[in-house]
Design a protein around this nucleic acid. Structure first.
Length: 568
RNA sequence: GCGCCCAUAGCUCAGUGGAUAGAGCAACGGUCUUCGGAACCGCAGGUCGGGGGUUCGAGUCCCUCUGGGCGCGCCA
């Protein structure tokens, strides 16, 4: 299937070249020619403003230039009419015959509708979620989960070969606390006296469940054990839980990358050595340029290893190896990104919460110091989510208790609702998740509005079958203006995929889905296929149209990771 | 104080430097002896936070101010 903006742009380009050959336009370097749907439908299906850009270099008024370009436009099957208007727009209208024929193309492409080849099979990796297995997934994390998975789906549709990766750390203090918390719950479930620590204790109910299972499996065998075996047990269970939660929203990672492997293969220390060789590391108990206060605080500390990130524009140097000679999170994170780059991906996408921005900058400085080319690396920063219930704002936190896990949210709404609401906002914007609205199964909830379009198509075919009618051998010339308007919108899907994949802006598909549905429902209302007074040939053509519509909705819903229900 | 993000209709938000700034919800008024109404139609709603600048053209780019979010740890 063709991308219409690009196809039109090529026509304009050829027209300009032809005009130059004919001497109607002077010679100049071709600008990037952009063609897009105008805001107002009366202005055409696609519009090009290149003549305005050319007015200055060519030294003529834009309207004349546009008219000249129009004169030299080559023929194309998809072009119905061309018009040059006011300041210098060239407006295109799609051929209606060509549009009608697209109904068959859409049906033929089916689940692969607008499967593009922009990625040309290049390898892309999307890293997202990446929560350590210390607890269930929270809503704050889940926005990144949905955005990351949808970006992966869009990249696949754009023609990339995509891997989904989850980076985690199962070492460190938090995991030790988790193991210790489980140990206490385990002893408690055996009826032994325990003391719940004030700090570093995980309160969650899930640990009581784990403890109960562990006690049932092991009896009193672990009464004298330290935190270690408990940590291992908790980690295993926790990951199973996280995976199960993600699967509920149709997210499956291909690779779980353990931070520890970067120590096992020594790459963390190799990275450090290379930075040292480059002269980017110094040893000191306090960073260079520190305030008196900081210096006083650091008095008596053993020297740490500092990275001169200020050389790359950072506000201050960062510690890579602490006084106790263990690395900070930053060092393995740099090593991880080196690892990613060396795996040869053409595109690396990293989904991060807004609070990780600074950390990521330091990683980039590290890569720069190591002389890696960071161009494949793209970061999508996700702004925070606020949960709203009864008009009240509940702030999200990965350490808060209560009711804000992704599982809870799915339980209270549905996987589809969660996916759509978390998706339908620019990642740059803060997101208010209105629980009351999400729970409502009414037209206030856009999720059902979109899915209902698919349901209605499915319903038509159930009914058609019952009445013994089919859409075989349809005469598509019988389709009217309403149907064509909808088909035009379906054909914009390619642009939406291309653009949202290129810009890593998956919310665009969500808005498109709603726009498509809002063209569908009025059409469904007026364009009847199975009414008694509809002639058979018209009914057949319309059924064929609804077949194409169903294909489009299914494709769009699947691109968003949502289900395309047959009934609701 | 420094860095990043945000500010558009009453509310929640779209808006790739192009033409008269758009949806949904809420509010108001209508439609239907339904291929499943979680629908459709209409009406109304705006100094695009303020001020400068760049451009043939700015909600969009630059500067600045104001207001909000996040970060600025030898935590991860």
């Amino acid at each position: 299937m063709i991308l219409l903006p690009q196809a039109h742009a090529q026509l304009v380009e050829k027209a300009i070249q032809a005009a130059q050959v004919a001497g109607d336009l002077p010679t100049f370097d071709l600008p990037v020619i952009e063609v897009r749907p105008p805001k107002r439908a009366e202005q055409g299906d696609y519009s090009c403003a290149v003549a305005m850009q050319l007015a200055k270099p060519v030294g003529r008024n834009p309207f004349d230039i546009a008219a000249t370009i129009e004169k030299h436009l080559p023929d194309a099957a998809f072009v119905g009419a061309v018009e040059t208007v006011k300041p210098g727009f060239i407006n295109f209208r799609l051929s209606e015959d060509w549009l009608r024929a697209q109904v068959e193309t859409i049906i033929a492409e089916g689940d692969k509708l607008f499967q593009l080849d922009i990625g040309q099979g290049k390898r892309a990796q999307v890293e997202f979620v990446s929560a350590n297995p210390t607890g269930p997934l929270h809503i704050g994390r889940s926005r990144g989960a949905i955005v990351g998975d949808t970006i992966a789906r869009l990249l696949e549709a754009a023609g990339y070969s995509v891997e989904r990766e989850y980076y985690f750390n199962n070492a460190g203090m938090q995991m030790q606390s988790l193991g210790n918390s489980l140990r206490i719950r385990y002893l408690e479930s055996l009826g032994l006296p325990v003391e719940i620590p004030q700090e570093g204790f995980y309160q969650g109910e899930y640990l009581k469940d784990f403890a109960g299972e562990l006690a049932a499996e092991q009896g009193k065998a672990l009464v004298d054990a330290d935190w270690q075996p408990f940590k291992e047990y908790a980690e295993k269970k926790m990951f199973a839980m996280i995976r199960a939660t993600l699967e509920r929203v149709d997210i499956i990672h291909d690779i779980f990358f353990n931070e520890n492997s970067l120590y096992d293969d020594n790459s963390v220390w190799q990275v450090l050595a290379k930075l040292e060789q480059g002269g980017y590391i110094y040893e000191s108990s306090v960073r260079e340029g520190a305030s008196e206060e900081e210096t006083a605080k650091a008095a008596g500390l053993e020297p740490a290893k500092w990275f001169r990130s200020t050389q790359f524009g950072d506000n201050e140097d960062r510690v890579l190896v602490k006084s106790d000679r263990t690395p900070t999170y930053t060092l393995p994170d740099i090593a991880y990104h080196v690892n990613k780059l060396e795996r040869g991906f053409d595109l690396l996408v990293n989904i991060l919460g807004a609070d990780h921005y600074t950390q990521h900058q330091v990683v980039r400085y590290g890569l720069k110091a190591l002389r890696y080319d960071p161009t494949p690396l793209h970061v999508v920063i996700i702004q925070f989510v606020r949960l709203i219930r009864g008009g009240e704002i509940l702030k999200m936190s990965t350490r808060a208790g209560a009711i804000d896990t992704l599982d809870d949210l799915i339980d209270q709404t549905s996987a589809d609702v969660v996916r759509y609401i978390l998706l339908a906002r620019s990642p740059d914007s803060h997101l208010d998740f209105d629980l009351d609205l999400a729970v409502k199964q009414s037209n206030e909830n856009p999720v059902y509005y979109i899915q209902n379009a698919h349901v209605r198509c499915a319903g038509i075919f159930r009914e058609a079958e019952a009445r013994g009618k089919s859409d075989d051998d349809a005469d598509l010339s019988l389709l009217g203006a309403d149907e064509l308007r909808f088909i035009r919108k379906v054909l914009e899907l390619g642009e939406v995929i291309e653009q949202s994949a290129r810009e890593l802006a998956p919310h665009k598909i969500a808005f498109y889905a709603h726009e498509l549905a809002s063209l569908f429902h009025p059409t469904y209302d007026t364009v009847r296929a199975l009414h008694g007074d509809i002639p058979d040939d018209v009914a057949t053509a319309r059924l064929r149209f609804y077949r194409a519509a169903q294909v489009a909705f299914k494709r769009v819903l699947r691109l968003m990771g949502m289900t395309a229900p047959e009934r609701m």
